[in-house]
Each structure stands twice: as structure tokens, then as C-alpha cells.
Deep mutational scan, measured.
Amino acid sequence: MSRVPSPPPPAEMSSGPVAESWCYTQIKVVKFSYMWTINNFSFCREEMGEVIKSSTFSSGANDKLKWCLRVNPKGLDEESKDYLSLYLLLVSCPKSEVRAKFKFSILNAKGEETKAMESQRAYRFVQGKDWGFKKFIRRDFLLDEANGLLPDDKLTLFCEVSVVQDSVNISGQNTMNMVKVPECRLADELGGLWENSRFTDCCLCVAGQEFQAHKAILAARSPVFSAMFEHEMEESKKNRVEINDVEPEVFKEMMCFIYTGKAPNLDKMADDLLAAADKYALERLKVMCEDALCSNLSVENAAEILILADLHSADQLKTQAVDFINYHASDVLETSGWKSMVVSHPHLVAEAYRSLASAQCPFLGPPRKRLKQS
């Protein structure tokens, strides 16, 4: 649940008159999402009104509101027999009622949201009550392989729920002597030191190019640089560091992050930047690179990204790559990247197969709970 924001200063709310007192009302909304995959969808019983329910879910471990999704594969009634019906059901509720908006969509073979439908307002739910769409999607369109909505005969539904909580009022009075504290510009100011090479005390040599930097900042941000300058190493004695395995453009992006906490060109060089972040123990930059690479996972590059993640101990990226390969196994196994990995990294192939087997055979063990970014 997000923290209630402070109200904007009255002088910034309007260029008009300023009242002596004010009130700011925040209506709290808890948002969460749920993904439900139905394997072997074409084998569902086709009687009209037949119901399939998901397991229950909530916004978190401490949330007492429990929900589930309900599907009628062949419609709810005679009117909707040519459609799939989809509903959000409130299973248990400690209150007399709650209000919530919802959005349903289908994830296609690429994991993209399609055929989205959402409620136009927050509906009133009581325990045992459901709301949804009797005519969510035509069955003939859903079952047509050309539309790519049932890869490997799996129907994957994605649901986003927004639950309306209580409202909170914050009130106060205006004073004539309003003090406005300026925003912190530390990142910009440190970035200026790097860009202008002011007050530098060490030189970093990268592929024949020299960059002036500040030992204190490098040591504070990177345990690797800290070790170089702290001990009686040649880098500490000469205040000069030779860097041979990072390209200059990648190095500059890494230094921008060290000084400012930002990497504006990360998406263009996420793979190389991940390697640099791993070498210099820049954990936050490493996770930022993992996130960017996750966003660009595809059938063509899944094997290469899995190898990269394994090489640099990028655990979150590795998990996402394995899950992606499992979901698109029939396509990924035909790529040149996968065939190369079979020869060069057989242990990763074995890991992917083990994960695929456990996903398809849940009876082999208890269900695993899916539970950071600093």
C-alpha cells in the first residue's frame, strides 16, 4: 500500500486566492494483479454453464480479502454459449462490502496482453458476489490457432484489481511565511564533478583513453575500487588504474551511474553493462540491467540471455529466462542460440529441462510459493 502523499503547497495549487485553511483528501486504492494459466484448455468440458475456478489470491499475505477468477468455457447461458465468460469473485471478506475495479486480458504466445476488457467503474462486491463479462471473447476466435491465444493449448488470463480503501483527510492552515525547501541536487552536482573533471585525484585508463576521477567517490560506490585504493596496490601508489576489459562507451555509462545513480543509455548496452556491474560489484546497476534484459526477452535471444545471466550470477534474470524458455519451449528449441547452448553450456540445458519437467508435473513435489530491489 502506498504512503499517503503530503498535500501540495497551496501557493502551487492555483494562481488564484489562497485560503486560510485547507483539506486534502486521499482515497486510498490498493492495486494488484494475478495470472492464471489453464493447461490443455481444449479438453475443458463443453457443457453450457460449466465452471472452472482459479485458486484464491489477494494483494498480499496480510490481506484478508480473498478473490478468485471464474471461467465458463462455453458461456454462462444460452445467450453467451458462443463466448467464454469471465468473472472476478470475492471469496471471503471481513467487511460487509468492498468496491473494486478490474481489468481482464489474455496473454498471447509472446506474453503480450490482448483482448483487454475492464470495468468502467468500481463495482460493489459482497462475499460470494462476482462481476465480469458474460461475453468476454468469442470461442471461435479464441480457438483459432492463427490468433495465437492458446500457445501449446494453454489459456493464460491476466487480471488487474484495484480495491478502494478508506479515504484519509489531511488538513492544515496557511501561513504568510511559507518556506520552500529546494530539491536535493546531489546527483546532478556529483555528475558535474565527473563531467568537468574537477578536483580529480586519479586516472582511469580504458582502451587508450584516459578519464579523470575521484578516488573517494569510486571507493564509496564500488567495493572493488575501494579494495584497489585501500591496500598497497599499484593503483593506490600511482593513482592510476588500467581497465582492459570494458569498452570506453560502456565504461562511461558505468561511471555515470557511479556518480549519479542513473544510467540513461542502459537499454542500448544492458548486456555489456551487466558484465561491468558484476565485475565492479555495483549491485543496483546489475539489477537494473537484469530488468532491462528481462523486458527484451524473446524467442530468438532467450538462450543467449540465459548464458549471460549464468555467467554473471544474475539470479533474477536467470529465473526469468528459464521461465520464458519453459513457456515458449517449442519455439526456443528451434533457435540457433539454443542449439549452440546445447554444445557450449549443457548444464544450462539440463537446468531448463528440470524446470520444465517440474512445471508440467506438479505432483512430483509440493507447490512452490512464489514470493528486491534495493
Score class of each variant (00 low, 15 high):
M1H: 00
S6V: 13
P7N: 12
A11I: 11
E12S: 09
M13A: 05
S14K: 11
S15A: 11
S15C: 04
G16K: 14
G16F: 15
P17W: 07
A19E: 10
A19G: 12
W22P: 00
Y24T: 08
T25G: 00
V30N: 12
S33T: 06
S33Q: 04
Y34A: 08
W36T: 02
W36A: 07
T37L: 08
F43N: 10
E46K: 02
G49V: 01
I52S: 05
K53E: 06
T56R: 01
F57E: 00
F57L: 02
S59H: 15
S59E: 12
G60P: 07
D63T: 09
C68S: 05
L69F: 08
N72G: 11
P73L: 02
E78Y: 14
E79F: 07
D82A: 05
L86T: 07
L86D: 00
L89Y: 13
L90W: 02
S92F: 07
S92G: 01
P94V: 03
K95M: 12
K95W: 14
S96Q: 13
S96A: 05
R99L: 10
F104M: 15
S105P: 01
I106T: 12
A109T: 09
E112K: 13
E113R: 06
K115S: 09
A116G: 11
M117Q: 15
E118D: 10
Y123W: 13
R124P: 15
F125C: 00
F125D: 01
F125V: 00
V126P: 15
D130W: 00
K134Y: 05
K134V: 04
F136V: 14
I137Y: 02
R138L: 10
R138C: 08
D140R: 04
L142S: 06
D144C: 02
E145H: 12
N147W: 12
G148C: 06
G148D: 05
P151F: 07
P151Y: 04
T156Q: 13
E160K: 08
S162F: 10
V163Y: 10
V163Q: 06
Q165C: 08
N169A: 03
M176K: 03
V179T: 07
V181H: 04
P182D: 06
P182R: 01
P182F: 03
C184N: 07
R185D: 07
D188T: 05
E189W: 11
G192L: 09
S197H: 13
S197Q: 15
T200H: 15
C202W: 15
C203N: 14
C203S: 13
L204A: 15
L204C: 15
C205M: 13
C205I: 13
V206T: 15
E210R: 05
E210D: 10
E210W: 13
F211V: 14
H214L: 03
H214Q: 09
H214T: 13
H214W: 07
K215H: 13
A216G: 01
P223T: 12
V224K: 15
F225N: 00
S226P: 15
E230V: 15
H231G: 13
H231R: 09
H231W: 11
H231T: 15
E232F: 03
E234S: 15
E235N: 09
K238M: 01
K238E: 04
V241T: 08
V241S: 06
N244I: 02
E247W: 09
V250M: 02
E253H: 09
M254V: 05
M255C: 07
M255S: 10
T260M: 08
G261A: 13
G261T: 08
L266P: 08
M269W: 10
D278F: 03
R284T: 09
V287A: 04
C289S: 10
A292L: 12
N296F: 11
A302M: 09
A303G: 10
E304N: 11
E304I: 03
L308S: 09
A309H: 00
T319C: 06
F324I: 01
H328R: 02
A329V: 09
S330V: 11
D331Q: 09
W338C: 01
M341D: 00
M341Y: 01
M341K: 00
V343Q: 10
S344I: 08
H345V: 02
H347K: 04
V349H: 15
A352V: 04
R354T: 01
S358I: 01
Q360E: 15
C361A: 12
P362V: 15
L364V: 14
P366C: 10
P367R: 14
L371D: 07
L371T: 14
K372V: 06
K372R: 12
S374F: 14
